[in-house]
Structure formats: C-alpha cells, structure tokens
Design a protein around this nucleic acid. Structure first.
Lengths: 207, 207
DNA sequence: AAAAAAAGTAACTAAACGGTTATTTTTCTG
DNA sequence: CAGAAAAATAACCGTTTAGTTACTTTTTTT
C-alpha cells in the first residue's frame, strides 16, 4: 500500500525545503541558486520542480515555514502564572534568546521586509502571530488592572516595541557593530541588551 | 582647456550613480541589473564599466555615497543651544523625519546588513557616523552634569536605542504592518511613534 | 511477474546576464 | 583645422541560470 514511495517523496521534499531555507536565508531570493539548493539537498534539480513548480513558489513555501517558526518562538514565553512584570520580562529575554539562536530566521524576515510582500505566501503573518500579540496585550491589561502598570500606557506602541526592540538588535548587528566598533554578537552583549530593553520597557509601563 | 569633456564625463558618472542607487536600493546587489541601470540612466552600458570597472565596484561606490548621506542626516539634529532633553527629542523626531523621507536609504542599509560586510566600501561607517555618535554622548553627559539625567543611565545602550528604535520602525514597516494589520506608513502613525520613542527614551534617561 | 505509475537522473535549452570589442562621434590640443 | 584623445554606441560573447525533455530505476498494483 504505497508507503515506501510516499515516505521517500516526503523525505526529499523535506530535504529540499531545508536546503532552500538555508540558501534563501543566506542569499535572498535573487541571490539564491536553484542548482545550489539541489546540490546542498542532494536531490536532483528536476525534483525541485516536481515538488514546487518554480523558484518563486519554492521561496513562497519556504517563507511560510519561516513565518510559522517565527510565531512558534512566542510559545516559549507564553506563561500564565506569573506577574505581569515577570511576563514582560520573559517576553524580552525569551525573544532575545530565540532570535540569537535563529540567525536564519532573522535574515529570512529581513529579506521578506525588503521584498515588500512580493512573492509572499498568501497565509497571513497576522494570523500566525495573533496568539503572541494577544498574550502581550493581555499581560498589559492585567498589569493595568492590578495597578502595577500606568493606566494610560499605550498598548499598541508597547506591542510594537516588544517586537521591534528585540528583532532590530539582530537585524542591524552588522551595521551597528561597525558604527559602534564593538562585536555586538557575543552572549555578554546580547544579555546586557536584553536586560536594558526589559528595563526601559518596564520603566515606561510601570507606575 | 578640456572643460566640456570633463563636465560631460562627470554628468554621466552622476547619472549612473543616481540610477544605480535606485536600482540597488530596490533590488539589492544580486537582483539589480547592470542593463537596467544603463537604461534608467540613459547611459550606454559600456560607460558604466568605463567609470566603475565592475558591478561589484559600482555597488561598493554607491554604498559609500549612501553611508555619507546616512551620516549627513545627523546634522539636521546637531544643535548646541538647547537643553539636553530638547536635544534628545530633536534626535528622535529628526531621525524619524529624515528616515521617512529616505526610503532608498533605509533599504540600502538593510541590504548592507544582509551582505554582512561583503562588497562593502573600505571607508568606515564608524568614521562617518562618529560626529553624530559624539553629539549624542555629549548630550547625555550634559544631561547628567546638569542633574536632569540619571547618573547611572547607560550611555552606550542609549546611543544604540536612539539609532535602532528609529531605524527599525522603517526597516520593519512591511512585516509589522502585516502583523498588526495597520498601515504604519502614514504621517500620523509615524509621528505618533516618534513621540512615543521620545518619551520612552526620556523616561529612561530622566531622573 | 508483468504492467502501470511514480521517483529519480543526466543532459539539454533558451534566455538573461555581466562584461568586451570594434567602431563612430565628439572634444581637445597644437 | 588636422590629428590625437577621450566619450559614446551598438553589436557581440561566454557563462550562468531557471526550467525542461527524454530516459532509467524503483515501487506499487493487479
């Protein structure tokens, strides 16, 4: 009952996706080479077209996976049993840790920004990220109810900060390291920054 | 005394650079096409190679100009006669305004980050940005001396924030607009964010 | 085990691309 | 204004690249 065949087909599909993600993350859509993906995955180029029609569709498919993994990172900090302050702290520290471990992801999202929605998967980034956003909003609301956060603290701006302040440390690593003449890509520097971001956001939020 | 010739030569050089900057900003190094630059500038392709040897050297040359314009933006906020608080505010508001007006610049710097120093001009980003950095440090020091800023406020982290918080609003416009389901690229949203960034940084700095 | 179907391979193609050559036009110099 | 020098043009070239074709091998079905 056609098992071996399906398994092999699935395996090559995965091999292609893995290699493609690395290639696209490294070189972007235009710089990536289909032949390079074929070689890196150990799969015949023909098979890439058999599974994913075109380079563009493959990119789109890869990006979909990237988005999902990006959203999955949020789960690391989505705990319920702690104080709002502890939760905000977990979001920042957790995000820094996750992003530090996923340079491919950071690069893929940077390429996506530069593509301005071109060759983007139909699936909504909004949808996959919604639970994470909701969680953040909930913690802010909880902090306000509990009287530890300022009642007029801007929820929308805070959500944006929590995402941008963490992400931009990694997306601008190269330029900023050059400008500030430091190697910002060390555990020590990353931890310091995470602590600082935690404190600047909490200082804004807390009464 | 060979004037007309020099003038024309200089003019075509500039036409090439202008077209190249737009093309590279839009598509990146790999996506940009030399033929497209030739056509957009109305200059024969041969002339591109006469002036700039190769596509890579042209890119490097364009990036040099980008870096300089990036540094030039700093001059818009480098005033001396105001209070440290007003100066910090000017930095943020000025940066938001400048970046909002220079989408090409933002994109070029994003590409530069993704290139990780590859094909970069020799000229140091650190050098051109130094005056702006110095200015910021000076204002922080002045604020501390005057007793309006906390003595233990982290200078380095604040410099990084002033740069990253402004830049990342624009570099992540697309992704964030998608996630938050808002058009963040409107004057109103940009101004709101600039005000918020001003206040969060000042809240951290001020006693 | 034979026929059918799916997976995989290698060699190929047409177009695009970075870069060049051969030539003409324009400008400068004496 | 003649000859040299520089600027500009168009047509071309070798490679690379996304995508395909024709063929072989493996797996499934009957």
């Amino acid at each position: 009952m056609k098992q071996k065949q399906q398994q092999k087909s699935y395996a090559t599909r995965e091999k292609i996706l893995t290699a493609a993600e690395a290639e696209f993350a490294e070189k972007g859509f235009y710089g990536a080479r289909v032949d390079a993906i074929a070689e890196a995955s150990g799969v015949n180029k023909r098979m890439i077209y058999a599974h994913f029609e075109s380079k563009e569709k493959l990119y789109s498919r890869v990006l979909l996976a990237v988005y999902e993994r990006f959203a999955d990172l949020d789960e690391s900090f989505m705990t319920e049993d702690e104080s709002p302050i502890a939760c905000i702290r977990n979001i920042v520290i957790g995000s820094f840790q996750s992003l530090a471990e996923s340079p491919h992801l950071v690069r893929s999202l940077m390429w996506a920004n530069l593509m301005r929605g071109n060759l983007m998967p139909k699936s909504d980034l909004a949808k996959v990220k919604a639970p994470g956003i909701e969680y953040i909003k909930k913690q802010i609301a909880r902090g306000k109810e509990m009287g530890v956060f300022k009642p007029d603290a801007d929820e929308y701006q805070t959500v944006l900060s929590l995402m941008n302040f963490c992400f931009s440390y990694f997306s601008n690593l190269h330029t900023m390291s050059a400008i500030l003449e430091t190697d910002m890509n060390t555990a020590e520097q990353i931890n310091k920054r995470a602590e600082y971001i935690t404190s600047i956001i909490l200082e804004y939020l807390c009464i």
